[in-house]
């Protein structure tokens, strides 16, 4: 592995303000770390002596575990804090919680929060690195990076690909981060779903918006399915889960009309039988579990780079 420059940030707050170079630096560094994961000894000493706090104010399985494992593979000490088991339930503000973590000399704070902008608020406040692990409906940068990593691995490129993101775009941070990243790297992004959840305003992000699901998936090289974000949604957005599945779910029929090599992605958690037919989730073209594996390498790369590590090439 050899070093190259290209990353100067202490925080990763979103994809929107990243350059193409920065994105490629993360992806290349992740590729190097993916090789580490295939060794017998999977641990490297890069972050030895550093303390990482997983501050999860909103529930998560995949992302929290992935960050924890990534940090441990880099030899950092890891503390996990979840909202229900913290002083936040006693009325402590996010600011005070964060200042206390800083007083304990935390080096990296990975934050998941239901409020958009919470990581930006912390980054302004703290000397520690702040990594956004999902803030409300705003961004989920490491998810977009691992999705891009997976696409690049499967398709060999991102530029020129047709990527369709299907489902609840309005309330999805995964959608926003993916849109920024994929359009920066030159993919053609199509958004589809119910008009109430895929407002036309997203055309201003450089995407195509359509409500014709058949047309949206027909020419797609990649189909990224999103869950309905009930926890953030108003009650009036569509009639019922049943109707959603009928109108927008990836059924076997619809799947049969996709390109034979179209990759099926999903950031999880999956609601089987709602946005995706259960068998399709498990089929050969589904890369859902590979996304999870790649997430580890991508998060290792992000933690490494934000701690001042020199970018790596595979």
């Amino acid at each position: 592995m050899k070093s190259k420059s290209g990353w100067k940030r202490k925080d990763l707050l979103g994809i929107e303000d990243l350059s193409v170079d920065e994105i490629n630096t993360v992806l290349d560094t992740a590729a190097a770390f993916k090789q580490v994961g295939k060794r017998t000894i999977k641990k490297v000493p890069s972050l030895r002596g550093k303390t990482l706090v997983n501050l999860f104010i909103e529930p998560s399985t995949r992302t929290r575990t992935s960050f924890e494992l990534a940090a441990k593979r880099l030899s950092a000490d890891v503390i996990n804090i979840t909202a229900t088991a913290s002083s936040i339930v006693k009325g402590e503000t996010l600011k005070d919680t964060a200042l206390n973590l800083q007083a304990l000399h935390a080096d990296i704070i990975v934050i998941r929060h239901s409020a958009a902008g919470a990581p930006h608020f912390l980054a302004r406040l703290l000397k520690a690195s702040v990594i956004n692990a999902g803030d409300g409906a705003h961004e989920h940068p490491t998810q977009a990076l691992l999705d891009a990593f997976t696409i690049r691995e499967k398709k060999g490129r991102i530029e020129g690909l047709n990527v369709t993101i299907l489902g609840d775009i309005l309330y999805s941070r995964v959608a926003r981060s993916n849109i920024w990243l994929l359009t920066k790297l030159g993919a053609h992004v199509t958004l589809a779903g119910p008009s109430t959840l895929v407002p036309r305003v997203f055309e201003q992000f450089g995407c195509r918006v359509t409500y014709d699901i058949e047309e949206a998936i027909r020419g797609a090289d990649v189909i990224n399915l999103l869950r309905i974000q009930h926890e953030r949604q108003r009650k009036t957005m569509f009639p019922s889960i049943g109707e959603y599945t009928a109108m927008f779910g990836l059924s076997k029929d619809r799947f049969a009309r996709t390109k034979p090599d179209a990759a099926i992605m999903h950031p999880g958690p999956i609601n089987r039988g709602v946005e995706i037919d259960s068998e399709i989730a498990d089929c050969g073209r589904s890369v859902i579990l590979e996304q999870v594996t790649n997430g580890l390498a991508v998060r290792m790369a992000v933690l490494f780079l934000c701690s001042g590590g020199q970018a790596l090439e595979p």
Binding site: E16, A116, G117, A137, H138, L170, R173, R176, Q204, F205
Partner: peptide, 10 residues
């Protein structure tokens, strides 16, 4: 509600 609320996820 508009472009910026869509960008910011608020």
């Amino acid at each position: 509600e508009g472009y910026w609320s869509a960008v910011l996820g608020l």
